[in-house]
Amino acid sequence: MSRLSYSLRALWMGVFNRRAFNKLRWKFGLEPLHYWSEWPLKGGIAAKWQDSEQCTSRVLVGVFGDQDHVLEATRECREAGFMIHDVYVPYAVHGLDEAMGLRRSRLTWVTFIMGALAGAFALFGQYYTQAIDWPINVGGKDPWHIHAYVPVTFEFVVLIGGLSTMLALFIRSKLYPGKKAKLCVEGTTDDKFALALAQRCTGFDHERARALFAKHHVERVMDLGDTP
């Protein structure tokens, strides 16, 4: 039963993607929905944001000097209901994705699907060239002898699987050669850890956020007008 409900939920989240829907709403100048249940309240009527200046992509950034501090701060801020815009860290901090509530990356699917396609293509290609298009008798060997085609198929799977993983990573993360880096604060590629909280809508509790930052030994707090 739980499996069924889980699949239904996945279907629901896929079809009724709130984030995508909010993007659309944003275009029409509508306030984003935090829950679908808010829809009737916030309405389809053009409820233009009253205080658009406060509700921009403003972030509150806390700069930390230690991975444990930023990890705990992230966890507590998320538990307190703040939206984590992003965390900027000089190295992959173990456990940070759980603290941020990130879901597992779906890059594995790209690798799997592209690898499977590449394998099918390589096998078919070898079959076509060796057995159909121009069969040649090499030492009396069978033109279609699958054992001989395993190495090339395997190499091709790895090649295409690897290259498509790389491309998927770059495309999904919007990384490309020559892209200008937008740093949140100086030093996040050296020894600083920056936690950026999104101040999306009205009701961002500055006092509470700063208190949480201070509890976890924040070094600097910055109120940035534009998201990095």
């Binding site: 000089p90 940070l96 597992r104 790389m166 999904r172 200008k180 937008k182």
Partner: peptide
Amino acid sequence: FGWNGSARIWSRYETA
């Protein structure tokens, strides 16, 4: 490639 240490990218990067 415009790397800025974003943890969202780090997470994907680790998977890759």
